[in-house]
Amino acid sequence: MNSPAGRRKTKALWVGNVQVGGDAPIVVQSMTCTDTRNVPATIAQIEALENAGCEIVRVAVPDADAAAVLGEIKKGIRIPLIADIHFNASYALMAIDQDVDGIRINPGNLGREKIADIVRSAREHNTVIRIGINAGSLEKNLQEKYGGPTAGAMAESALNHLALLEDMGFDRIKLSLKSSHVPTMIDAYRMVAEKTDYPLHLGVTEAGTLVNSAIKSSIGIGLLLHEGIGDTIRVSVTGNPVSEIGLAYGILRALDIRRIGPDIISCPTCGRCEIDLFSLVERVEQALVGMKEDLKIALMGCVVNGPGEAAEADVGIAGGRGTGLLFKKGRVVRKIKEEEFVEVLLQEIAEMTRHK
């Protein structure tokens, strides 16, 4: 499915076994919060992210010890691995030599000669380079020119660095222009999207905890996707990165761009609600983490209006006092006890997904 505005056509490139750009679906990414030097913990978190639907993962490389274990991590996971590099070009070279699928650098933190070394190595290993522009680490001369880390300053920085890599004969490039200020992020991506057809990785940096991140990311990432801008996304959340994946797919689903995993709809509750709907929703959500099948599931707190209000749902429950109605496509199937809600619903979902 494409964005309502029509997807911006970008160059296609492969990050490991995942295509980014071109006609490929919007790719969902995340980043580990483990100590990269702790290989078992990092691999375990990457596996959890993959199970939740993450398609590309990035790890921090703060020192040589972290850089040295990237190959071991790479061998222990199934999804493409990106090394996040700041300031030290030698870590980028170590990462590339261990066959990571991509690196993320901010060329403004590295000298031209060191970037040339990175480009030569990346070309030899077929490694993707993401030029990662961040409002918090923008070049001082551009901040002075624009009066701060504005969208214009970020766009100019990205295009300057893009031209630098192109002059070196390298074009396996992704771009990102992240800011914690949503309007700045939106404007920066729009500016760059008008001037280049390289794939864009969208994100609102330092978006905060779950609720704040959901708000900022839905507006920033969602608005750009609706305009057809963006090829990969990461929803940044303070805490366990697994929570990022559900939010990312929620944004894609809400825009009818990609429909992966369950779409759980539930009423806000009112005086007619006579069941513990909050607990019901939480238990069902937890049970379905990692589910890939597209299924609309309704959990309603009213047996009077519930089935009708959720008529478009594939399956759902409308609860009353101690009992509820199991329904499919708005049609009541049978009556069940409240203590059976989760078990019966999950059984129905399992049966439906077997036939999808």
Results as ranks from 00 to 15, higher is better:
residue 17 N to A: 13
residue 20 V to E: 06
residue 21 G to N: 05
residue 22 G to N: 09
residue 22 G to D: 07
residue 30 S to Y: 07
residue 33 C to I: 06
residue 36 T to L: 06
residue 37 R to D: 03
residue 41 A to K: 04
residue 43 I to T: 13
residue 51 N to P: 00
residue 51 N to S: 15
residue 55 E to Q: 15
residue 61 V to N: 04
residue 66 A to M: 04
residue 66 A to G: 07
residue 72 E to C: 11
residue 74 K to C: 05
residue 82 I to L: 10
residue 84 D to V: 13
residue 87 F to V: 03
residue 91 Y to M: 12
residue 94 M to Q: 12
residue 96 I to P: 01
residue 99 D to T: 00
residue 108 G to R: 02
residue 110 L to Q: 01
residue 114 K to P: 00
residue 122 A to E: 05
residue 129 I to A: 02
residue 134 N to E: 08
residue 145 K to R: 15
residue 151 A to L: 02
residue 153 A to W: 11
residue 155 A to V: 11
residue 155 A to D: 06
residue 165 L to W: 04
residue 171 D to C: 12
residue 175 L to E: 09
residue 178 K to C: 12
residue 180 S to K: 09
residue 180 S to I: 13
residue 186 I to D: 02
residue 189 Y to A: 01
residue 189 Y to F: 15
residue 191 M to D: 11
residue 196 T to G: 03
residue 200 L to P: 02
residue 201 H to I: 05
residue 206 E to W: 08
residue 216 K to Y: 00
residue 217 S to R: 05
residue 218 S to W: 03
residue 220 G to L: 07
residue 222 G to A: 14
residue 225 L to G: 08
residue 233 I to T: 06
residue 234 R to M: 11
residue 236 S to P: 05
residue 237 V to C: 06
residue 240 N to A: 11
residue 241 P to N: 14
residue 253 R to H: 04
residue 254 A to M: 15
residue 257 I to S: 04
residue 263 D to V: 15
residue 269 T to H: 10
residue 273 C to A: 15
residue 277 L to V: 11
residue 286 Q to A: 14
residue 293 E to H: 08
residue 299 L to F: 00
residue 300 M to W: 00
residue 303 V to C: 04
residue 303 V to L: 07
residue 307 P to R: 09
residue 309 E to H: 04
residue 310 A to S: 12
residue 317 I to P: 01
residue 323 T to V: 10
residue 333 V to M: 14
residue 351 E to L: 09
residue 351 E to I: 00
residue 354 R to G: 13
residue 355 H to F: 10
